[in-house]
């Protein structure tokens, strides 16, 4: 095993672990906003590490450019969908998880928001 291969292995495995961390975050975090955070950060780092780890695997300039492009597109998609979900969640006043001593409703009423009541009922 060459040095490059060891480096590659570290990148790939740690990339996959980032995905696992993202999934655990998605499951463990208390509300929609924090889940967006877990999702859009951990995955993109994970995919980035995997992409970088795959570049030397069968090196060619075109393949490298293609997988880098895929990474960029995924980041764009993740950032945009995270933003859209957060944007709409805020507009619909999806509550933050109340931390001790402070209710989520108060946090929201301080801000200027459109005042429709939340219609995003838990679905089951």
């Amino acid at each position: 095993m060459t040095l490059l291969m060891i480096l590659q292995s570290i990148l790939l495995i740690s990339g996959a672990l980032m995905f696992l961390v993202g999934s655990i975050g998605l499951v463990r975090f208390p509300d929609t906003y924090t889940r967006i955070h877990a999702l859009t950060k951990a995955d993109n780092v994970g995919l980035g590490l995997i992409v970088i780890g795959l570049i030397p695997a069968s090196f060619s300039v075109l393949v490298t450019l293609k997988i880098l492009l895929i990474w960029l597109l995924v980041m764009l998609a993740s950032a945009l969908s995270g933003h859209l979900v957060a944007w709409e969640a805020r507009a619909q006043q999806v509550p933050l998880k109340p931390s001790e001593g402070e209710s989520s409703k108060e946090t929201f009423s301080k801000r200027e928001l459109s005042t429709k009541e939340s219609s995003d009922e838990p679905s089951d």
Partner: peptide, 13 residues
């Protein structure tokens, strides 16, 4: 879930 958005985020992942 519990919210629709949470399910969708998982699909994104």
């Amino acid at each position: 879930g519990p919210r629709l958005a949470d399910r969708l985020l998982a699909a994104q992942l």
